[in-house]
Computed example of a mutant assay.
Amino acid sequence: MPLIPVTRSIAIDSDEIEESFTRAGGPGGQGVNTTDSAVMLRFDVRNSPNLPDAVKIRLDAIAGSRMTREGVLVLRSEGARSQLLNRQEVRERLFDLIREATFVPKKRKPTKPSRAAKAKRMDGKSKRSAVKNLRGKVFD
């Protein structure tokens, strides 16, 4: 059970990653019909003991439709003709998603506009109103 480092503080057990192989679609000649080069990776996020709860919650939000109701992240790669390259690519996408989920977004501090900003806005509104008032009908 070797651990795969994802970040400095998070490492995933290789047994937690389940990979299956299928035939890839698209061009590739006769090799497409004979080789199982597409890779489907499944990673159980909810039951992973190596991920902190906060990361699990953010990863669920980031993954979107790639996450099942049971909390399993499903990724697929069939871009390369080589099974090895597809395995590396799909694993790197998994690690990138986990790294993205480790970043905690900063809380927004609500601010109010300054007095000068309010005055500038009101001045602009009054100038625009004056321009529009000049567009009316002309009387003798």
Rank of each mutant, 00 (worst) to 15 (best):
M1V: 15
P2S: 13
I4V: 04
I4N: 10
V6A: 00
I10L: 11
I12G: 00
E16Y: 10
I17C: 02
I17S: 04
E19P: 01
E19R: 05
E19V: 01
F21I: 00
R23N: 00
R23E: 02
G25V: 13
G26I: 08
G28A: 11
Q30Y: 02
G31W: 07
V32C: 12
T34Q: 07
A38F: 02
A38H: 06
L41V: 00
F43T: 05
F43D: 06
V45F: 00
N47K: 06
S48W: 07
N50Y: 13
P52K: 05
I57Y: 13
D60L: 09
S65R: 03
M67R: 04
T68V: 14
R69E: 10
E70P: 01
E70K: 05
E70W: 04
L73Y: 02
V74Y: 05
R76T: 03
R76P: 00
S77V: 02
E78I: 03
A80K: 03
R81F: 06
S82I: 02
L85D: 12
N86D: 02
R87A: 00
R87Q: 06
Q88W: 00
E89P: 00
R93L: 04
R93A: 09
L94C: 09
L94G: 12
L94K: 09
F95N: 02
D96F: 12
L97M: 13
I98T: 09
R99S: 03
A101K: 06
A101H: 09
A101M: 13
A101E: 12
T102Q: 07
P105F: 05
K106R: 15
K107I: 08
R108K: 15
K109Q: 15
K109T: 15
P110T: 04
P113A: 03
P113G: 13
P113D: 05
S114I: 11
A116P: 12
K118E: 13
K120P: 01
R121G: 05
R121M: 09
M122V: 15
D123K: 13
R128Y: 11
S129H: 00
S129Y: 11
V131K: 15
K132L: 14
K132R: 15
N133Y: 10
G136N: 10
K137F: 06
V138I: 11
V138H: 08
D140F: 14
D140W: 03
